[in-house]
Write a protein that binds this DNA or RNA. Structure first.
Length: 241
DNA sequence: GCAAAGATTTGCT
DNA sequence: GCAAATCTTTGCC
């Protein structure tokens, strides 16, 4: 036999470390606990080969730095407030599944379903820090802008790397996430879109604030500190909110 | 069957 | 700081 028994893990891209499946058990617990576990985790999109629809895209990885919790049918800000419908039905299913919706007729947003089946809850992924595949993220963003009618030849205003994914619809655009991704198992290492646990890193400082863009919900829902962020990240949504 | 509103982003004033 | 873009989902007649 040759030197096969060494079984050393293959070298990985700078700063990423070996891939580790994200534990579904963490998402099955209380959503605010799951939110703390999700911060720092990786959102991964496998490489996409060239097709008629689009040129090839390299592997994309982002570090989750901002999430919002939507918990139960009583939460007047949650899509589950209408009860079970065609749109939100995966929120009532098992944890670890992707729920993607279209908002304002033009933007997609990615949620990770949490809590046991029968209890509708999810975490909205509001921002990630680009780690790998930044070129593909820019290409996907530009492709979406072009589809929205930007004239050919228009030069997009320069956007710093860290701001490419600084908002829920920006994350979706950069990762080519659409409603077709609803139902994907984000905890399955075989899924082309998935979560991975981070390698050991210094525990980030987590800050809680009220949720964004839900004035229609009224109190107490508008004021609950159900938005959690990794403090000081350059990729937080808005003006570094 | 129709009307209203929305878990956002962008660009202009 | 504010309004427009854009179309699906939900509620009501």
């Amino acid at each position: 036999v040759t030197g096969r028994r060494e079984a050393r893990p293959p070298p990985s891209a700078p700063g990423t470390g070996p891939a580790r499946a994200f534990p579904r058990s963490l998402l099955e617990g209380p959503t605010l606990d799951a939110a703390r576990g999700l911060l720092g985790a990786r959102l991964v999109r496998d490489p996409v080969p060239a097709s008629e629809a689009q040129p090839a895209r390299e592997r994309r990885v982002g570090r989750i730095v901002e999430v919002e919790a939507y918990i139960g049918e009583d939460d007047r800000a949650s899509h589950a407030r209408f009860g079970r419908t065609d749109r939100n039905r995966v929120m009532f299913g098992p944890p670890g599944i992707a729920y993607v919706y279209l908002v304002y007729g033009m933007h997609h947003c990615l949620n990770v379903v949490t809590e046991p089946a029968g209890r509708p809850a999810a975490l909205l992924v509001r921002a990630v820090e680009p780690m790998e595949g930044i070129e593909a993220m820019r290409a996907a963003r530009d492709a979406r802008a072009a589809a929205r009618g930007r004239a050919a030849g228009d030069v997009p205003r320069h956007v710093p790397d860290a701001r490419l994914t600084a908002g829920p619809a920006l994350v979706a655009a950069a990762f080519d996430i659409t409603r077709g991704d609803t139902g994907v198992d984000l905890c399955d290492p075989g899924s082309p879109l998935r979560l991975e646990a981070p390698v050991a890193e210094a525990l980030p400082t987590i800050r809680a604030t009220s949720r964004i863009g839900i004035p229609y919900a009224g109190e107490p829902w508008t004021s609950l500190p159900w938005r959690l962020v990794i403090d000081g990240s350059p990729s937080l949504s808005g003006r570094g909110r």
